[in-house]
């Protein structure tokens, strides 16, 4: 029993120690926060994908949605792909509304207005940004021979995450809030026979930061 416990605790402690450090900052601007939460309305979180040199990662959007839904079970977050498919082709990168007033034009399409009413979508949150890897350094050599193989060396890199969430109110056709989060962290990979990655959870920290701020906006309990 004690051995089993030790087998679980030691890797757990090791993994806790073996994560790089992350620095995160969150800025928030809120213009019109719902005082009682969003009630039985739904919220959808979409990634902006207009830029040519980066793409807001779908898994980041999913992470923020899960963060909100997990902490306040009363908030229904519609999945990004589910929403994009249900409203195809009106929220594709080429056709998506760029400003809240564009929703009026979209509502002129009767099937679109009916679908949005059916989905009870009150807030649309656009997230724009990405996580990039910078400043890689170090070197590592790996070899394999009849007696076995292994690696030797050291690598390090930094990850920078920069995301901005813009909250649109579908009913008022207005932007009602904006949250910006930046996170940076250094990851390391020393290798003596076996490479040991010490990864800084930069994107996860940015997801928690932006998710927490959005939760404060959307939830009546926060």
């Amino acid at each position: 029993m004690n051995h089993t416990l030790l087998r679980l605790i030691i890797p757990g402690v090791f993994l806790t120690l073996a994560t790089g450090c992350v620095t995160s900052t969150v800025d928030e601007m809120v213009f019109d926060e719902p005082s009682e939460g969003i009630g039985d309305a739904t919220v959808v979180i979409l990634g902006r994908r207009h830029a040519s040199d980066y793409e807001t990662e779908p898994d980041f959007i999913e992470c923020v949605g899960k963060h909100i839904a997990a902490r306040d079970k009363s908030i229904e977050v519609i999945g990004e792909l589910e929403f994009l498919n249900a409203l195809y082709p009106w929220f594709e990168p080429r056709t998506a509304p760029l400003k809240p007033s564009d929703i009026d034009k979209l509502m002129l399409q009767r099937p679109v207005a009916q679908k949005l009413t059916a989905l009870k979508t009150e807030y649309l949150i656009w997230i724009d940004g990405s996580t990039v890897r910078n400043d890689s350094a170090g070197s590592m050599a790996c070899g394999i021979g009849p007696g076995g193989g292994g690696c030797f060396g050291f690598g390090t890199w930094s990850n920078d995450a920069d995301y901005e969430a813009t909250i649109w109110d579908f009913t008022d056709r207005a932007e009602v809030g904006r949250v910006n989060t930046k996170a940076t962290g250094q990851s390391y990979m020393p290798a003596v026979v076996i490479p040991i990655p010490i990864i800084a959870p930069v994107q996860g920290t940015a997801c928690d930061g932006i998710g927490e701020q959005l939760l404060q906006f959307l939830s009546g309990h926060y």
């Binding site: 994009l84 498919n85 249900a86 409203l87 195809y88 082709p89 009106w90 399409q109 009767r110 099937p111 679109v112 679908k115």
Partner: peptide
């Protein structure tokens, strides 16, 4: 390979 949604149009 992929799946494509029907368009929401009149």
């Amino acid at each position: 390979k992929g799946s494509f949604p029907p368009p929401l149009l009149e």
